[in-house]
């Protein structure tokens, strides 16, 4: 039986998280189908057909799917579930919203946030903020899975040539409606897809300092910007910057933690980064226990100097 990946897309293209989920699906060794649920998302369906290793794209196009409301998307996934052995989605906010609804409708215990595939029914997933890794075996005939994107290297976005098949969407549930969206506007790379991330914590002391002190460093490195929960709770930066157990999970090549003490919950979101740099005035801060390179001192002096040194 084939496996189905529920794609994360923006109508025009497929988001990178989908490529990570396809990579996880490949470990199962079956044909991979991708579902594009949306409205006027033909371009995304075409993009999905080009993903390496994808055998078929299901394209459900309906006005009630435009905003990816859980009720309508879950019903669409459930309508084709019987054709599949596994249903996967990346652990994005959409994936986390929709898949448990799908699982419950199918009477399946979902397996959240897998980081490894051990077999068709066994998977590894982090628990307790990543302080333990559990290998679990499912006895459900169908598996519903969300995929931790940082744990699987993205497959190539090009090279495939899958057929696109239309899929009729179930009628609007009438239970929910989309009101609006306030998306953070940024020219920077997306946090979960960035190769370098510059992240600030409580030590930044204000939102203004993120702009004045940290932004020049991020600009210099071509980096995305992130934050600890403390900085988000204090209102320095928007919620979607939060890296951690319950925020975004990231694993860039380089993670620069500035004025972040390193609570367990923050480390859970970034400790799989390849190289970690910490800049903090408290030399006992737990962040130094995971940092490859640490600088102890006043960030307001170190960061501007760092920017100057990078120009050399």
């Amino acid at each position: 039986m084939a496996v189905l990946v529920v794609a994360e897309h923006d109508s025009k293209s497929v988001r990178k998280a989908t490529l990570n989920a396809v990579a996880a699906a490949q470990k199962l060794g079956s044909d991979i189908h991708v579902l594009i649920a949306g409205h006027e998302a033909g371009a995304a369906a075409k993009a999905a057909a080009q993903i390496a290793g994808v055998a078929k794209v299901l394209h459900a196009d309906a006005p009630q799917l435009r905003d990816f409301l859980a009720e309508n998307v879950a019903a669409t996934v459930v309508s084709v579930a019987k054709n599949y052995s596994h249903l996967l989605a990346p652990s994005t906010s959409n994936g986390k919203n929709v898949m448990p609804r799908v699982a419950a409708l199918l009477d399946v215990q979902q397996i959240s946030d897998i980081v490894a595939v051990e077999g068709a029914d066994s998977f590894v997933r982090p628990i307790y903020a990543g302080n333990a890794l559990a290998t679990v075996k499912s006895r459900d005939p169908l598996k519903v899975i969300t995929v931790r994107t940082t744990a699987f290297d993205a497959v190539a976005a090009a090279g495939g040539d899958a057929a696109v098949e239309k899929l009729a969407a179930p009628a609007d549930s009438g239970l929910s409606s989309f009101v609006g969206r306030e998306l953070s506007k940024s020219e920077r790379p997306e946090l979960t897809a960035a190769k370098i991330i510059v992240s600030g914590g409580r030590g930044m002391a204000s939102g203004e300092n993120f702009t004045k002190v940290l932004e020049p460093l991020a600009d210099r490195l071509g980096a995305a910007m992130g934050a600890s929960r403390a900085a988000v709770d204090a209102g320095f930066v928007p919620n979607d910057w939060q890296v951690g157990q319950t925020g975004k999970i990231v694993a860039p090549d380089l993670y620069v933690a500035v004025g972040i003490s390193g609570a367990i919950q923050h480390l859970a979101g970034m400790k799989d980064s390849r190289v970690i740099v910490a800049i903090n005035k408290d030399e006992e801060a737990p962040i130094f226990q995971v940092a490859d390179y640490g600088v102890v001192g006043d960030l307001f002096q170190i960061v501007p100097t760092l920017v100057e040194e990078l120009k050399k």
Partner: peptide, 24 residues
């Protein structure tokens, strides 16, 4: 339960790195 936990292990620990003197 539908899931059986086969095993629980500690994740690989990151080694603490080095402290460097300054930005340079």
């Amino acid at each position: 339960p539908r899931l059986t936990t086969l095993k629980v292990v500690e994740p690989a620990k990151r080694k603490a790195g080095v402290k460097v003197a300054d930005a340079k």
